[in-house]
Design a protein around this nucleic acid. Structure first.
Lengths: 146, 146
DNA sequence: CCAGAGAAGTAAAGTCACCTTACTATCGGT
DNA sequence: ACCGATAGTAAGGTGACTTTACTTCTCTGG
């Protein structure tokens, strides 16, 4: 029925495509389990919640470890704050800086997303066997780090 | 100096993050070698050029194999056509359908990007050894396919 | 001690890769 | 000739950013 060549399926895909497909899948699985409990939160927000240490962090530092601009990160922080997942306060010793912290609700959302990720990791580990899965992770680490 | 916890570095990252980093890297490497020769083309355009079979395809079919909407795909097609990488013509036997084809320039761009990808694959294969690399690709295939 | 360099953050607008909703044009069957 | 389905288009929206251009604040050197 489809007039297109079937070569373009999974078998012949290059690494970029394979990586993209796996990434799409894990993102979908995380959202599938979290979106009901925390409706406004998207994957990028969980990523940011993860980056905030327990004693808080400055927007500039968060932007740096997230490798994005202060403005971009600031937008996410504003969003999370509006929904009650983070708070922020100006430091008395330097009133330029805004120290961002997770609220208890933020902690909860983070724990929930981490549990969701852990479940995916566990399932993948069972699917492949722990040895293959660990060596897969190791390879990813080697390729991702310069 | 940085007041953030160093746990959030590469070592402790979860699969989603590892996948994301590897994907970012390969996309950057593809663009690094292609952007000079084909300035307007982005990774998504190479992806689309790849999907067009030699005898052309309809927008609807391309959208389906790319798993996106006809409108989204149509925008990319319009863009590529404006830059001369594709052409399209209405079929005489069904004047609703637009058959999209690559121009010689489109072929050239595609070949160039595929060579860039091949170079990355080769380098990764050398970095890990062919056995580990092939098993890495195999794992990705298993995880990406449902 | 205060001018001005530089850092922290904000505002506004733009970009890219999409999607949704709502069409028009055309086709194939009855 | 009508009618439902199909191919594609138009207009506008969204998410995750970016760039350019500031304000506000702090800290250092003449």
């Amino acid at each position: 029925m489809t007039s297109v060549n079937d070569d373009s399926r999974v078998g012949a895909a290059h690494v970029g495509r394979l990586l993209g497909m796996a990434l799409l899948r894990i993102r979908a699985e995380i959202l599938a389990t979290t979106s009901e409990r925390f409706p406004g939160l998207r994957v990028s927000h969980y990523r940011l919640l993860e980056l905030i240490p327990p004693d808080g962090a400055r927007i500039t530092d968060l932007a740096e470890i997230a490798t994005m601009t202060k403005q971009g990160l600031g937008q996410h922080v504003d969003y999370l704050q509006r929904l009650g997942y983070t708070t922020s306060e100006r430091l008395p010793e330097d009133r330029r800086v805004r120290l961002v912290r997770r609220t208890p609700l933020g902690d909860e959302a983070l724990a929930y997303s981490q549990a969701a990720i852990a479940r995916v990791e566990e399932r993948w580990s069972r699917q492949l066997g722990p040895d293959r899965y660990e060596s897969f992770r190791q390879t990813l680490r080697e390729l991702g780090a310069d």
